[in-house]
């Protein structure tokens, strides 16, 4: 095909499509603006984390990785990264395990109770994190449990993660064909065998997704960690304590690291739980 023919082709293909495109200009513009509103601020932080100088204005004179070097040499940051990773890991495992059991339990309830239980599990999302944070702090204090305090924050993170885990898990379980399970039992499979050959592989991706979601909630969580971990803080706490100081370009790198960690977990979680229907 010659270039002229190709461009004529493109033109004729474009013409009939113009009308519907014009029709939805409003909605399209709205979507673009909203996505910009949601993601542009994050993009700005990422962009300036690669800035060669310390200034925070456009145009950017050049790019470098110096702020990452600086931040990763920082002991406080590395320690906080470790604590965040531990908290996320434990929240993922605990939240995923408790959540999958509870989701299976909800699945087996009579319809009348199902709705009520599904509403009750949302309560932690509808409780200000501030209340949970200070509640958990004073609770452990009254129980006479003193530092290490990271476990207190983790206890709160699991609580916050459970509603999200249950929401995604129950939605996923609704889509499964549990008739397969009955068929296997009817054909003489033992309860254990039916579980391992049918339920387990069916549920596994959703469980993984839910665990990743719980980990994402933990890594991103600030308020509960603030009231419980104190000076042995997680990554968001380090960022919070440094924000008020004079402009520190290293913060952009730090924020980007946190952002990449949460986004990665969130993307993986959203993909594993929404991918198949």
């Amino acid at each position: 095909m010659t270039a002229a023919a190709a461009s004529a082709n493109v033109a004729s293909a474009a013409r009939p499509r113009r009308r519907p495109r014009v029709r939805n200009v409003g909605p399209r513009a709205f979507l673009v603006l909203l996505i910009l509103f949601l993601f542009a601020p994050l993009f700005v932080v990422v962009l300036f984390s690669f800035n060669a100088t310390a200034s925070l204005s456009f145009p950017i004179p050049g790019f470098s990785l110096r702020w990452y070097d600086k931040v990763l040499d920082d002991r406080e940051v590395v320690a906080a990264l470790g604590r965040s990773a531990i908290a996320a890991f434990i929240t993922g495992i605990a939240g995923g395990a408790i959540g999958i059991l509870a989701a299976l339990g909800i699945q087996g309830l009579p319809p009348r109770w199902k709705g009520a239980v599904q509403t009750v599990v949302l309560i932690p999302i509808a409780t200000p994190a501030l209340l949970l944070g200070i509640g958990i702090a004073i609770y452990f204090n009254r129980l006479g449990i003193k530092p290490p305090r990271l476990p207190m924050a983790i206890a709160g993170h699991v609580l916050l993660a459970l509603p999200f885990v249950l929401l995604t898990m129950t939605a996923a379980l609704e889509r499964f064909r549990f008739s397969l399970l009955e068929a296997a039992r009817d054909l003489g499979a033992s309860r254990a065998r039916a579980f391992w050959t049918i339920t387990f592989p069916l549920v596994l991706p959703a469980v993984l997704g839910a665990a990743l979601l719980a980990a994402a909630v933990s890594i991103d969580e600030f308020i509960i960690a603030f009231f419980n971990t104190g000076s042995d803080g997680t990554l968001p706490l380090v960022i919070y304590s440094r924000i008020r100081r004079v402009i520190d370009p290293g913060l952009n790198a730090l924020a980007t690291i946190l952002l990449v960690a949460t986004t990665l977990l969130a993307v993986l979680a959203a993909r594993t739980t929404t991918a198949r229907r």
Partner: peptide, 12 residues
């Protein structure tokens, strides 16, 4: 967006 960056957003 929901699970990514509460504090990072504020900082941004």
């Amino acid at each position: 967006a929901l699970f990514g960056g509460y504090l990072v957003r504020i900082y941004a």
